[in-house]
């Protein structure tokens, strides 16, 4: 009558492909530009705020056209970006603050103490090489690590918020090792004042 032939299970093509260990799994050695230079570079990209992270915050103080000649307004996001460094970077799947990150945060802490009316949100981000949910947690863990360090340096906790966007708000939309290194970050964003 009806002959239904069940063939033996063929192994899916994805299996058993054990090639060389990929480089992104190895401890990464990426040369990042010194923070100040990075900030300058970012600022040079555009006269409007170069970072993408403001979307949720609704609140970076932008430098208007007149400030281009006179430099950023003291206490503004542009001031933080250009003169202090608004972001710190992390290794793959890590929320550990390295020496460069700590020194950037030390400058941020000093700067925040100069402007006591300013409050800030630390936004945590990841690269795209992980699941969305795990990265939401990892991003928040990075933001928390940066915020905790800032408060250990004397910035009152009441002036600091954290938020995570996981892998969904990359600074660099590329998909290279370099882009991923720039996206594993915590960015300090000045809250809008009302």
């Amino acid at each position: 009558m009806v002959a239904v032939t069940a063939l033996a299970v063929v192994r899916p093509r994805a299996m058993n492909c054990r090639g060389a260990k990929s480089s992104w799994e190895l401890p990464m050695k990426l040369t990042l530009l010194p923070v100040a230079a990075t900030a300058l570079l970012l600022a040079a990209c555009s006269s409007t705020p170069s970072s993408d992270e403001t979307s949720g915050a609704g609140g970076m103080t932008t430098s208007d056209a007149s400030s281009l000649t006179s430099g950023p307004v003291a206490g503004s996001q542009a001031d933080l970006e250009q003169n202090v460094g608004d972001r710190v970077y992390f290794g793959f799947d890590s929320s550990t603050l390295d020496e460069t990150a700590r020194s950037t945060l030390q400058r941020q802490a000093t700067w925040l103490q100069q402007f006591p009316s300013v409050s800030a949100t630390v936004e945590g981000h990841t690269d795209e090489r992980g699941t969305r949910e795990y990265n939401l947690a990892l991003g928040e863990r990075r933001a928390s690590a940066a915020a905790r360090y800032l408060s250990s340096l004397g910035v009152p906790e009441s002036r600091l918020m954290t938020i995570s966007y996981g892998k969904d708000r990359p600074a660099d939309p590329g998909s290279s090792e370099e882009a991923w290194a720039l996206n594993r970050r915590a960015v300090t964003v000045i809250n809008a004042t009302n």
Partner: peptide, 15 residues
């Protein structure tokens, strides 16, 4: 009934 297919066996020729 003769017409039946065991879908637990991996690839099956479509009916």
């Amino acid at each position: 009934c003769q017409l039946a297919v065991d879908i637990t066996q991996g690839v099956v020729e479509p009916i």
